[in-house]
Design a protein around this nucleic acid. Structure first.
Length: 370
DNA sequence: GCCACCGGTGGC
DNA sequence: GCCACCGGTGGC
C-alpha cells in the first residue's frame, strides 16, 4: 500500500492527427503531443492540441461552464477542451523541461473569445518563451502530471497526463505558459476544513503555513491480484483498507473496479511516493493522522491532531493527552502509531536524489509488500 | 510565546 | 542500522 504526495486525474493519449486547415501537415492532433528533438532549423510545430479530459468532472470552458479559461483553450461540443500551443521547436529539445521556480506566480486568466483560426494564426508562443509543455507544478515547482515517457522516431510523446484537478484555473505567463491547477487551493481548502472541524481555538493556533507540497494528497492501494494501483477517495478509506490488509489483501473489486480496467495511477517518479505498512490501526475517531515529508525528503514525521487541534508527536504525548482529557479515553493507545511510511527513493525528484546516497530501488512492476 | 521543523540519541 | 522519541531552535 502506498500513499503519495500529489494527486491527479488522468488524461489519456490517442494519436489522431489531423491536417491543418490549409491542408499542410501539422503536428496538431488530439490527445497527443510530441516534441521534436531536432528540427534542423525548421519550424516543426504549427500548433499542438492536447485535449484534456479530467478524470472526475470535465473542465469547462467559458462557453460551456463558466470557468475562466485562457484563450489557449477552446471547448468542443462534448465539453472537453483543447489546449493549443503554437510555436516552434521546443527550446528544451529532447531533454526534460525545466521546472518553473515559482508556480504560484500565475496570472489570472484572460477572458476573450478567440476563433480557432485566430488562435492558430497568431502563434501564441514562440521558441524563446515556450514553456515546459503541459507542466502542472506543485508548490515545490515539481510537475504534477503523470507523464508516460515514450520516444518514437526521436520524439518525446506524452501518452498520458494526469491533472490534479478537474479544472485548470490559470494559464499564462510572460516567461512562458504555465498551467496551474486547483490542487494547491484544494490543499488549502482541506486545511481550512480541518480547522473548521477542530474549532476556532485550533484556527487561532494555526498561525504558521502548512507544509505545502509535503503532505499526502493521494491515497492508493495496489491490487493483490493484478498489481494495478487504485486511488482511494479518502484517508479514512485508505486506513480502513490498510488496517485489514494483512487478513484481507486489497483487490480492485473492493473499489468496485475490475482488474481489466487500466490502473488509476502508475508508480513512477512523476511524484514522490511513500510506502506505508499494512496492518496499522485506523486513526481513532475525532483524531487525524498527519504525515509530513521533510524538506530534504529524508523521512516523514507522524503527528496525531487531537479534536482540539493539539499536535501529538509520540505515544507518550498521546498518553498524557488522554490522561488529561478523559473524554478521549475511548481511543485505545494502541491505535496511535507513529510508524512512518518509507520514502521511495526512486520516486524522489532529481535534486533530492542527488543529495541522498543510492540504495535499494523499487520497481512499479513488482507488487509491494510493506 | 508558540509552533513547525529538524537533528540527535538511545533502545532494539 | 533502524526507528521512536523528544529537545532545541529559528521564524513568525
Amino acid at each position: 500500500m502506498l500513499i503519495m504526495t500529489s494527486s491527479s486525474a488522468i488524461l489519456t493519449g490517442e494519436d489522431e492527427r489531423r491536417p491543418s486547415e490549409d491542408g499542410t501537415p501539422t503536428h496538431s492532433h488530439r490527445r497527443r503531443w510530441s516534441t521534436p528533438i531536432d528540427s534542423g532549423g525548421e519550424s516543426l510545430h504549427d500548433s499542438c492540441t492536447v485535449e484534456i479530459n479530467s478524470g472526475h468532472e470535465s473542465p469547462k470552458c467559458r462557453e460551456h461552464g463558466g470557468v475562466n479559461l485562457d484563450d489557449f483553450f477552446s471547448c468542443s461540443s462534448d465539453n472537453k477542451y483543447s489546449f493549443y500551443l503554437g510555436g516552434e521547436k521546443s527550446q528544451w529539445g529532447a531533454s526534460e523541461p525545466p521546472l518553473l521556480t515559482d508556480p504560484r506566480s500565475i496570472a489570472p486568466p484572460r477572458t476573450r473569445n478567440v476563433s480557432g483560426e485566430e488562435r492558430r494564426g497568431r502563434s501564441v508562443t514562440r521558441k524563446q518563451d515556450l514553456p515546459p509543455f503541459l507542466t502542472t507544478l506543485d508548490c515545490n515547482g515539481r510537475p504534477r502530471f503523470h507523464h508516460r515517457r515514450v520516444r518514437s522516431e526521436g520524439r518525446l510523446e506524452i501518452a498520458s497526463v494526469a491533472v490534479d484537478s478537474p479544472e485548470i484555473v490559470s494559464v499564462r505567463g510572460r516567461g512562458g505558459l504555465r498551467i496551474g491547477t486547483l490542487q494547491l487551493q484544494l490543499l488549502l481548502s482541506c486545511v481550512e476544513m480541518e480547522e473548521e472541524e477542530i474549532g476556532k481555538a485550533a484556527r487561532a493556533r494555526a498561525k504558521k503555513e502548512v507544509a505545502q507540497g509535503r503532505v499526502i494528497d493521494i491515497y492508493a492501494a495496489q491490487c493483490d491480484k493484478c498489481h494495478k494501483w487504485r486511488v482511494l477517495e479518502s484517508q479514512e478509506t485508505y486506513e480502513d483498507i490498510r488496517s485489514r490488509m494483512l487478513e484481507e489483501p486489497f483487490r480492485c473489486d473492493q473499489k468496485h473496479a475490475s482488474c481489466e480496467e487500466p490502473a488509476d495511477i502508475d508508480y513512477d517518479a512523476s511524484r514522490t511516493w511513500v510506502m506505508d505498512k499494512p496492518g496499522l490501526p485506523k486513526t481513532p475517531k475525532g483524531f487525524k493522522r498527519s504525515l509530513v515529508l521533510r524538506k530534504d525528503y529524508s523521512k516523514m514525521d507522524t503527528y496525531y491532531i487531537t479534536p482540539s487541534g493539539k499536535k501529538l508527536r509520540s505515544r507518550n504525548e498521546v498518553a498524557s493527552f488522554v490522561e488529561a482529557n478523559p473524554d478521549f479515553s475511548y481511543a485505545p493507545l494502541g491505535d496511535f502509531t507513529f510508524t512512518v511510511p518509507k520514502v521511495m527513493e526512486d520516486t524522489l525528484p532529481p535534486d533530492a536524489r542527488l543529495a541522498s546516497p543510492p540504495s535499494d530501488k523499487c520497481s512499479s512492476n513488482k507488487p509491494f509488500r510493506g
